[in-house]
């Protein structure tokens, strides 16, 4: 069995309203020095051994992420 963590985040330049709101909330709570908050998704995949990174990348491009607005990063976990 293989395990993958997929990190999906707003593409650079795409406004992340949830992150911006959390950032201003932190500011209101008195936490100084927070320059940026970005909120994304973590998708955990458990796959058969033959599912390689290339296949996971295809899954991300086709369904799990929308390349128009999102970036993704694939990490295989042990």
């Amino acid at each position: 069995m293989r395990k993958y963590n997929l990190y999906i985040t707003a593409k650079k330049g795409i406004f992340d309203p949830a992150g911006a709101t959390a950032q201003s909330a932190l500011d209101n709570l008195g936490f100084a020095g927070v320059n940026s908050v970005k909120i994304g998704k973590l998708i955990e995949l458990e796959t058969a051994d033959e599912v390689n990174t290339d296949m996971v990348e295809t899954m991300c491009k086709k369904l799990l992420a929308n390349p128009i607005i999102e970036d993704f990063r694939i990490e295989e976990v042990q």
Partner: peptide, 17 residues
Amino acid sequence: LTEAHLLPGALIRNKGL
């Protein structure tokens, strides 16, 4: 329609949440 690439672009969360 945007997800199906029949129209360009995408629709994200409203700015004011």
